[in-house]
């Protein structure tokens, strides 16, 4: 499958990236090359093969329902780029 500049632009919004026209041009060609390379997977017959998400196939890993202390609020918020005394602040979510 080949990749167009407009595909790249669409993906950039999905990925929440803002690309310059030069970046879009470069990525269209680089991603195109990579995707073309990856297309060789199509050669393999995987009709009867189950997908494998983890090489080590564990199941049923649980934690007990016991409350442990949370972090102090100031530690949680200490890295926030913008905050007030008790919350994170972000540009208005309305109209989004």
């Amino acid at each position: 499958m080949s990749l167009s500049a407009s595909d790249v632009e669409k993906v950039s919004l999905l990925a929440r990236l803002l690309l310059t026209p030069q970046e879009i041009e470069a990525l269209t060609s680089q991603l195109g090359q990579i995707v073309e390379y990856v297309d060789q997977l199509g050669e393999i017959d995987t009709e009867q093969v189950e997908p494998l998400a983890h090489a080590v196939e564990l199941v049923n890993v649980w934690a007990d329902d016991e409350v442990r202390p949370s972090l102090p609020r100031d530690e949680v918020l200490s890295g926030a780029p913008h905050r007030d005394e008790d919350s994170y602040l972000v540009p208005a979510v309305l109209g989004d």
């Binding site: 499958m1 990856v38 997977l41 199509g42 393999i44 995987t46 093969v49 189950e50 997908p51 494998l52 998400a53 090489a55």
Partner: peptide, 12 residues
Amino acid sequence: AYYLKALKVRRL
């Protein structure tokens, strides 16, 4: 075509 296919090849 990509992700699921790759997981299958991963098993191989």
